[in-house]
C-alpha cells in the first residue's frame, strides 16, 4: 500500500469526520436524525461560493461566512420546523414511534436544495481565491498540499474543540442536561429551545465548513455534492455508534481507508457495495456500533 494512498485516506476521512461530527452531535443530543445535513452542507458550499466569487473574500473569511450561513439554516430547521412539529406530535399523543421528525428533515433538505437549484441552476462552480491553499509541502517522499493540511487540521481541531466544549464548558453542560431531561433542565433555568437551536447551529456550521473544503478539494461545487456524503455520513455515524463522537472519528477514518483501498482496485459501484455491505454486517453483529451505547434505541424506542 503506497503512502499516497494513506494520505488520501486521511484527507477523505477528515472530510467525512467534519461532515459526520455535526450529524452525530444533533443525533446524540436531540435524537433527531437530520437528513437535511447533506443539503445544509451544500448550502454552506454555495454561501461560500457567493462570498468567494461575488464578494471576493479571502478563503479564511469565506469559511466563516459559509459556517454562519449553514449554521443559520440548520438552526432555522430546529426552531421553525422541528419544534412546532414535536409540539404538535406531543399534543396528539403520536408517541415516540413517530417518524415525523425524520420526514420533516428530509423535506427541509429537499426545500433547501430546491431553492438552491432555483437560484444557481444546475451549474458547476469553483472557488477562485484558493491560491493560499495550493502551496505544496514535501515531507520526505510525500507531497502534501496546504489544502490537504487545512482539511485535516480543520477536522481534527473542530472535532476536538467540540468534544472539549461538550465535556468541559457550561454550554456543553447545558447541552448534555437538555439532551438527558429537557423538562428538568428547564426547571433549573436552562432554556431548552435556545440550547437546541445553538446545537443545530454548531452542527450546521461544521457542515458548512465541510462544504467549502469539499468544493475546493474536488474543484467543483454543484447542488448534488451533499447526496453521496449524506449516505456515507450515515454509514459512519452508524458504524461509530450513533451519538458517540469518538466512535464517529474512528469510523470516519476506517470507512475512508476501506474506500480508498477499494477505489484503487474496484469500480465505484463495487466500492459502495463493500462500504454498505460492511455497514449492514456491522449492524447485525454489533447493533450499537463500534463504541455506541444505546443512544439510538433509547431515542427512538418508546421508553
Amino acid at each position: 500500500m503506497s503512502i499516497d494512498l494513506i494520505k488520501n485516506a486521511i484527507v477523505l476521512g477528515s472530510v467525512y469526520l467534519l461532515f459526520a461530527t455535526g450529524f452525530t452531535l444533533v443525533f446524540g443530543s436531540f435524537k433527531v436524525m437530520n437528513l437535511a445535513h447533506g443539503a445544509i452542507m451544500t448550502l454552506g458550499a454555495f454561501v461560500g461560493i457567493y462570498a468567494d466569487n461575488v464578494l471576493g473574500f479571502p478563503i479564511g473569511f469565506t469559511l466563516v461566512v459559509a459556517a454562519i450561513g449553514a449554521g443559520a439554516g440548520n438552526a432555522f430547521l430546529d426552531a421553525v420546523i422541528l419544534r412546532p412539529i414535536a409540539r404538535q406530535s406531543a399534543s396528539t399523543h403520536a408517541g415516540a414511534e413517530d417518524l415525523n421528525p425524520i420526514v420533516a428533515t428530509l423535506s427541509f433538505g429537499t426545500i433547501v436544495l430546491g431553492l438552491l437549484v432555483q437560484t444557481v441552476k444546475a451549474v458547476d462552480f469553483t472557488y477562485k481565491q484558493t491560491d493560499a491553499l495550493a502551496k505544496p509541502f514535501a515531507f520526505g517522499g510525500l507531497t502534501v498540499s496546504s489544502l490537504d493540511l487545512a482539511i485535516v487540521v480543520c477536522a481534527i481541531v473542530m472535532t476536538g474543540l467540540l468534544s472539549l466544549i461538550i465535556a468541559k464548558t457550561r454550554a456543553g453542560m447545558a447541552v448534555r442536561a437538555v439532551a438527558e431531561d429537557r423538562a428538568m433542565a428547564s426547571a433549573l433555568g436552562v432554556r431548552p429551545n435556545v440550547v437546541s437551536a445553538a446545537t443545530f447551529f454548531v452542527s450546521g456550521a461544521m457542515a458548512g465548513v465541510c462544504g467549502v473544503l469539499v468544493g475546493i478539494l474536488y474543484s467543483n461545487v454543484n447542488v448534488t455534492i451533499g447526496d453521496h456524503l449524506l449516505l456515507f455520513g450515515f454509514v459512519i455515524v452508524t458504524v461509530g455508534g450513533l451519538g458517540s463522537l469518538t466512535g464517529t472519528a474512528i469510523a470516519a477514518y476506517l470507512v475512508a481507508l476501506v474506500q480508498t483501498i477499494a477505489n484503487a482496485y474496484f469500480q465505484a459501484a463495487a466500492v459502495d457495495l463493500i462500504v454498505f455491505g460492511t455497514l449492514l454486517l456491522t449492524l447485525l453483529i454489533r447493533p450499537n456500533g463500534i463504541l455506541g451505547k444505546n443512544a439510538l434505541s433509547a431515542g427512538i424506542a418508546r421508553r
Binding site: A177, S186, G189, V190
Partner: peptide, 23 residues
C-alpha cells in the same frame, strides 16, 4: 416558561430527584 419561573426563584426538587446521569 419553566426556565423563566426558575430564574424568578422557583426551584424544584422533583419527586425521584431527576439527577442528570451524564453530568
Amino acid at each position: 416558561s419553566p426556565a423563566s419561573r426558575a430564574r424568578l426563584g422557583i426551584s424544584l426538587v422533583p419527586e425521584s430527584r431527576r439527577i442528570f446521569g451524564s453530568l
